[in-house]
Every structure is written in structure tokens, then in C-alpha cells.
Design a protein around this nucleic acid. Structure first.
Lengths: 209, 209
DNA sequence: CCGTCAGGTTACTCGAGAGTAGGATTTCGG
DNA sequence: CCGAAATCCTACTCTCGAGTAACCTGACGG
């Protein structure tokens, strides 16, 4: 009782406490959003008291941004690995879509901070999310440029379309179709939709009939 | 001066005042989001004083929901007209995508309430947005079902993918590509991506190579 | 044993902002 | 001209929640 460092007890070294606070905060933010959660809620969840939070983070926003960054890094790592792992563009598209589905399925739920943040109007948040989206859209745009004759602007637009497709479909799947369709099948379906769409473009110029 | 009912002056009949308050509120919500705007801001923008707002709406949320509903109705009217106007599924897809681009381009900016609300965690808001998305996804799923051999669940997933594609691409176009690509061209591009994706599916069963 | 310090706590402050009480003023039918 | 109904305003109240001041405590090297 007094010996083992059981989860909800005693003092912790700074770095461990920080990690624990982060994970508690993530839980709360994930299921209530930024505005509806108070620092008190986070403190309570962490089994600690409010000033402790401020020993690790200068403000509520600061704490939130740390989690947002971690979430974005997670997503990036995942899709970047997929892109590096092959040079077959079709497979690359599949892996990118997979990455979104996997990210969304992560039980920690960090995707909610990245895709459904209720703090989008905070410049610091918008900037990060925009930047993250842009990076993915550009990656896809690059693939598109290799396989079609579209201009960079057009390719980027399509890239962001693909991104939106993956993001929204992954979220719908998570909430409404997870029992009917396996993650792999769902991702494969969406990837096909996208890949067929891309490869249908001629090697120069816009569509016409 | 004292005669003409110039915009920023005098008393108004209830119904006109209501409309005016709505439009002022929309302006403010659109460029600051729900949380960052105070009832005082809205009152000021409307050239009126806070209690007046409460003569027309029971709460800030009530006011916001009225605007959200109007926005959703606008979007619905637009894409529904497109669907009714033809039975050619390819054209239907084009018109649906067009509807998103037009909606996003509306200078009033109501799309921000529907696509980028910072009040998503309020159940009343989430419910409406989810419902709106579902309606569109189902409309597209219906088209998909006619043109492929996919199951209803699969079609709905693809439908939400198409929706996400249109939504996200339209937003990127508005903010970053509007000067390079015309609205029509952008929508056409995205519609092609989607339509080629759809029509690439065989008339029964999932993809393989 | 004792100083000291990292780690923690209780109990505040203080500003912001939603919503309201109560009193003015305008307008208009009679 | 007059009263009463509609419209609007000034000036609050009250809650909620971020951030803080000031104090406590257990551990550990000397």
C-alpha cells in the first residue's frame, strides 16, 4: 500500500508526472473538447491538484498544443512511413488512406484534436492543423503529378480532396460502420475510389466528357 | 435623416429587427467562431443593445442554432436542386460537388458554421451537422448503388468519402486556389476525381489489383 | 537529527461574459 | 392631444473558470 507506486498514488518525478498529466488531459479533451473541460477536470483526472498542472505547462492552451502536436506527429509518422516504404504510387495511396484509418482507430482518440478541434479559431491551432493538412495534400499531389498531366495547383486541389475523403470516411467508419466493415476493407475501398479517380486523368489537361 | 429608415438607425418592427440581428450575428460568428464572440459583440454589430437580442432568441445557443439551421437549409436546397434536375448520375455528382463550392463561396460565409463550427461538442450542433452530412452521403450512396455492385454499407462509406472530398477541397480552393482556378474548373476537377473513382468499381464486389 | 528542496496542497483573486430588472422613449389609434 | 403597447436602453447580478499566493511535507545527504 505504502510501498508500491500504484497508479493513483504518491509523488512522482517531474518527467513522469508530466507524462501522466498529458495522458489525463488527452482523455478529458478528447471526450469533452477544449472549451467544455476545465483545468480542474484535468487535475482531478490526474489525481493531482491544479497548480501542479501549471508547473508543467504555462497555460491551458499550452497544454492543449502539446497534445495537438503529439497527435499530429503520430499521424505524420504513420503516413510518412507508408510513403517511404514503396515507390508504387498505387500502394502509396493505399498506405496513406490506411494511415488515416489507423490514426482514427487509436483508442486514445487523439484524432479528435486534429480533425474535430473546437479550438480551430485559435490561430496557433489553426496554423498547426492547416500545416499538417497541407503536408499530406502535397504528398498526394506529388503522386498525382507523377501520374497525370495536371498542373501543380490542380494536383494540390485534388490532393486535398483525397485527404478530405480519407479523413471524413475514416470518421464515419469509426462511428457507424466499424461493425459492418473491417478497417482494412474500408481503407481499401476508399483507396480504390481515390486511385481510380486519379488514374482516370489523362496525361495532359483537364477533363472533358 | 430622421425620415428614411437608414440601416443603422431607429426602431424597427419585430420581424425586421430579427432578420437584422440574425445577419449581424452571422457576420460575427463567421469571423470569430462561437466561443470568441460575446453577445455584446453581436449587439454592437447590430447597433442595438443586449436585451434586444433576448427578445428574439432565448439564448446565445438558440441564436446560433437558428443560423446553423439556415446554413444547412441553404446547402440542402442547393444540392437537392442539382439532384432533381437530371437523372444522369454523372451530372448529379457534378452538381453535388458544384453545390459545395457554391456554398463555400457565398460571401456570407455560413459554411463556417456548418463545416468549421467550434461548437461541435454541443449535442444540438453535432446532431444537426451529422444529420446534414448523412443526408448528402446517402444521396451519393444512392447514386453509387445504382452504378456499382457495392453493398449499402460500402456505398454509404464511399458517399461520405465523396462528401469529405468536396467539403475539404472546396475549403482549400476558397482559401488558397481561388485566384488560380475558377470555381467551375475546380468543381469539375473534383467531380471527375469522384466520378472516375465510382465508375471504376465493378458491378459486383470489392477491388483487387 | 536537521536543513533544504522537489513536489504538492488549500484557498484564494479576478476578469469575462451570459442573462436580467426596471425604467425610459417612441409611435399610433382614437 | 393622450394613453398604452411596442421597442429599446442603462446598469446591474451572478456564475464559472483560469491562473496564483502562500503554505505544507516527506525524503535524503551530511
Amino acid at each position: 500500500m505504502t510501498i508500491t507506486g500504484a497508479k493513483p498514488s504518491g509523488r512522482l518525478p517531474k518527467s513522469e508526472r508530466r507524462t501522466q498529466v498529458l495522458s489525463s488531459a488527452l482523455e478529458v479533451f478528447v471526450d469533452a473538447g477544449y472549451h467544455a473541460t476545465g483545468m480542474d477536470d484535468i487535475a482531478e483526472r490526474a489525481g493531482v491538484s491544479k497548480p501542479v498542472l501549471y508547473q508543467h505547462f504555462t497555460s491551458k492552451l499550452d497544454l492543449y498544443l502539446a497534445l495537438l502536436d503529439a497527435g499530429i506527429d503520430e499521424l505524420h509518422a504513420s503516413y510518412a512511413a507508408g510513403l517511404r516504404s514503396t515507390s508504387d504510387n498505387k500502394v502509396r495511396v493505399q498506405r496513406t488512406v490506411q494511415a488515416y484509418f489507423e490514426f482514427v482507430e487509436d483508442p486514445q482518440g487523439a484524432y479528435r484534436l486534429v480533425f474535430e478541434s473546437d479550438l480551430i479559431n485559435e490561430p496557433a491551432v489553426r496554423e498547426r492543423v492547416d500545416q499538417a493538412d497541407l503536408a499530406v495534400a502535397q504528398a498526394i499531389a506529388h503522386i498525382i503529378t507523377e501520374d497525370t498531366g495536371l498542373s501543380p495547383q490542380q494536383a494540390l486541389l485534388l490532393g486535398s480532396g483525397m485527404l478530405g475523403m480519407s479523413q471524413v470516411a475514416a470518421r464515419r467508419w469509426l462511428r457507424h460502420a466499424r461493425t459492418d466493415i473491417s478497417r482494412e476493407e474500408a481503407a481499401e475501398l476508399i483507396a480504390s475510389l481515390g486511385w481510380r479517380g486519379i488514374s482516370g486523368f489523362p496525361l495532359s489537361h483537364p477533363p472533358e466528357e
